[in-house]
Amino acid sequence: NITNLCPFDEVFNATRFASVYAWNRKRISNCVADYSVLYNLAPFFTFKCYGVSPTKLNDLCFTNVYADSFVIRGDEVRQIAPGQTGNIADYNYKLPDDFTGCVIAWNSNKLDSKVSGNYNYLYRLFRKSNLKPFERDISTEIYQAGNKPCNGVAGFNCYFPLRSYSFRPTYGVGHQPYRVVVLSFELLHAPATVCGPKKST
């Protein structure tokens, strides 16, 4: 009989979030998941669920729940959905087409922007091929755009693959930082360890 609440607040209220290319994953298990708490945590810009209804979450049980978190800019949030393409979905964080879970995003301009520009958040701009779903690539190998090998040196047709967002508070919403948490629900042929409040007794 599990009584402890799932530590969603640790994920959502973390002081620092990860850069999207090096997104963070927390496995959540053996706890009571009260998803209604999430609705009250922040004024969400996005709370979209796929393959599951957000209002039914509190009635369900899962084997595992994974919470992935990272920062992107406002106009990239739409890429965090099944079947999307674009720089983020292709080279940084890719959801599977049959994704079961929820994408939660909110504006973090007050936390993640600086007047002089916050350069701490990076994204991958160049990659030889698209990522597979939930693949994480943290390599910093020089990207070869031409025929000549780069031998690890940046220059003509040889690019450092990561680029930094420079978040400034005066930017338009599309270029402001957004914190994203992706909850993916895993149903294996194994005992369910993460249940809503109704199912945990």
Rank of each mutant, 00 (worst) to 15 (best):
N58H: 13
P54D: 10
D59L: 08
A145P: 02
F185G: 09
Y50I: 05
G146I: 02
L111A: 12
N130P: 15
C102Y: 03
P43W: 09
P161M: 04
Y35C: 07
D59E: 15
V182G: 01
F62D: 07
I138C: 11
G146R: 02
P169E: 02
K132L: 12
Y123V: 15
L125G: 13
F45I: 13
R124H: 00
Q144L: 05
V181E: 00
F160A: 13
F44I: 14
R136D: 02
D137E: 04
C61T: 07
Y178W: 11
P43F: 08
D90S: 11
S53Q: 15
A67K: 05
T201M: 14
S200G: 14
Q79Y: 05
F126S: 03
Y119E: 10
N120E: 13
S19Q: 04
G83Y: 11
K26P: 00
G155T: 07
L5D: 10
C31D: 06
P133Y: 06
L122T: 10
F126K: 04
I80S: 00
N107T: 03
D68C: 03
R179A: 00
V77M: 09
G101P: 00
P43N: 11
S108D: 00
N107L: 02
L38A: 07
L125D: 01
S116L: 09
D137W: 04
K114T: 13
V65R: 10
A22V: 06
L187S: 15
A67E: 05
T63G: 11
P161N: 04
Y143D: 00
V180D: 00
K128G: 12
K132D: 10
Y159K: 00
D90A: 10
L162I: 14
P169S: 04
N92C: 03
V181C: 05
R16C: 11
K199N: 13
D75N: 08
I80Y: 01
T100Y: 14
F70Q: 00
F167K: 00
N13F: 11
H189V: 11
V181S: 03
V20L: 02
F45Y: 15
R124Q: 00
R78E: 09
E135N: 06
F167Y: 05
K48R: 14
S139K: 09
V182K: 01
K48V: 09
G172P: 00
D112I: 05
D137P: 02
